[in-house]
Amino acid sequence: MKRFLAVPLLLAVACKPPTPAEQMDTIVSWIATARMAGDASLRRTTPDKYTRQTLELSDRMLLQSGSELLKSPPPAIDSADFAKVLIRTRFQIKEMARLVEQKAAPEFRQPWDSLGIYEKIVKQASDRIDSSR
């Protein structure tokens, strides 16, 4: 009998949407990707087109995962504050993509540094979600 119950139970577990912690991991992952791509670009070790495409992809994925998370925000974060952080994060990434396209290398470091600050804030929020589980 237990075996018959196990299959629907497994499927029910699998059918559930990603948890807030998993959504937060995705957000952290895309911000870190943008930072790493930016770091490689600062060292002039990747082609500009790759950097721009990766930054644009990070921005799209952040929009998508951020919207999902904010539909039912976990109690461990202040949703209004977090939404603002996400908007600012995305702004820095868009700014980096714009500067790459304009080949304005000297100005690139400023949004990249700012992105680092937001990355820390988001990681702290992610840790709060993890510890509240």
Binding site: V28, A32, A37, A40, T45, Y50, T54, L57, K123
Partner: peptide, 17 residues
Amino acid sequence: PMGIQVNTFPQAALLMT
């Protein structure tokens, strides 16, 4: 350590940078 999950090719491309 950076929390990057490799879900796309552009992310994987940073492996050796």
